[in-house]
C-alpha cells in the first residue's frame, strides 16, 4: 500500500494499466451484451430479463465504489496516505454514474414487470440515497479550499456514508419490499445457468471499465494538483 504512496511510482504503473482496463472492459461488456441477446428469455418475465446484464453490474459497482471511498477515507484519516484523497475523489464520479445507470435501468425494468416506474420501497429508496451521497461527496471533496481539512471532512463523510451499504444489501431481507431478495449469494445462484452466464462477462467487463475510469481520473487529478502547486510556486517567486 505504501509502495504507491509516491505518485510518480503510481503513475508509472497507472499509465500502461489504463488502456488495458478500458479496452478489456469494453470488450468483455461487448461480448456479454451480445451473449445476453443469444441467451433464452425468462419463463415469467420474457425478454425484459436481459436488463439484468446491465442492472446487476451497475448496482454492484455503485456499491463497490462507495466501499472504495470508505476504504480510501480510512487510509487518509489513519495513515495520511497521500494518494487516498485523490483515489476517493476519482471513484466518486463513476460511482455516481453507475448508481444512476442502475436506478434508470431498474426503473425501465420495473415498468413491464412490476407495473410501476418507481416505488418507495426499502431497496429503491436506499439506492437513491446512495446516489445523493455520491453527489454530496463530489460537491464536498471538490470544494475549492485546497486544504487538508477539506480532505478530512470529506473522508469522514465517506466513512459515515458507508452505513448505507449494509442497508442497501439487507433492505430486501429486513423489510417487506417490492424488489425481490438477492438472486446471487455465496450459497449459490437462483438464476439458471443459460440466463446467468452472460452476466459473468458483463460484470467483470463493467468492473474493468470502472477501474479504467478511476485510473484515468486519478491521473488527471494528480496532474491538476501538480499544476496548482507549480502556479503557486510561480506566484510566490
Amino acid at each position: 500500500m505504501h509502495a504507491f504512496a509516491n505518485p510518480a511510482r503510481f503513475l508509472k504503473l497507472a499509465r500502461p494499466l489504463t488502456p488495458w482496463c478500458l479496452g478489456l472492459g469494453l470488450a468483455l461488456i461487448g461480448y456479454g451484451i451480445y451473449a445476453g441477446f443469444q441467451s433464452p428469455p425468462d419463463a415469467v418475465q420474457g425478454e425484459t430479463v436481459r436488463i439484468l446484464y446491465i442492472h446487476v453490474p451497475t448496482a454492484w459497482l455503485g456499491m463497490l465504489g462507495w466501499m472504495g471511498i470508505a476504504l480510501t477515507s480510512l487510509m487518509l484519516l489513519v495513515w495520511r496516505h497521500p494518494l487516498a484523497a485523490v483515489a476517493a475523489r476519482a471513484i466518486a464520479v463513476p460511482g455516481a454514474l453507475f448508481t444512476a445507470v442502475c436506478l434508470i435501468s431498474g426503473s425501465i425494468w420495473g415498468r413491464p414487470t412490476w407495473g410501476t416506474w418507481w416505488q418507495w420501497d426499502g431497496r429503491m429508496t436506499s439506492m437513491l440515497l446512495l446516489l445523493f451521497l455520491y453527489l454530496a461527496y463530489i460537491a464536498l471533496a471538490g470544494s475549492e479550499s485546497e486544504t487538508s481539512s477539506t480532505e478530512r471532512v470529506a473522508a469522514i463523510f465517506g466513512l459515515v456514508g458507508a452505513v448505507n451499504l449494509p442497508v442497501i444489501h439487507y433492505s430486501v431481507v429486513w423489510w417487506n419490499t417490492l424488489h425481490q431478495p438477492p438472486s446471487l449469494s455465496l450459497q449459490g445462484s437462483a438464476i439458471a445457468w443459460p440466463i446467468l452466464w452472460p452476466l459473468l462477462w458483463t460484470t467483470p467487463g463493467f468492473t474493468l471499465l470502472f477501474a479504467g475510469i478511476v485510473l484515468m481520473r486519478m491521473r488527471t487529478l494528480i496532474a491538476e494538483n501538480k499544476k496548482l502547486a507549480r502556479m503557486r510556486r510561480l506566484a510566490r517567486a
Binding site: A43, V49, W114, I191, A192, I195
Partner: peptide, 15 residues
C-alpha cells in the same frame, strides 16, 4: 392499484 412482485428466480421456459 395492483403491482406484480416477482421472486429472485430466473429460468428459461420449459427447463
Amino acid at each position: 392499484t395492483i403491482l406484480a412482485k416477482h421472486d429472485e428466480k430466473y429460468m428459461p421456459p420449459g427447463m
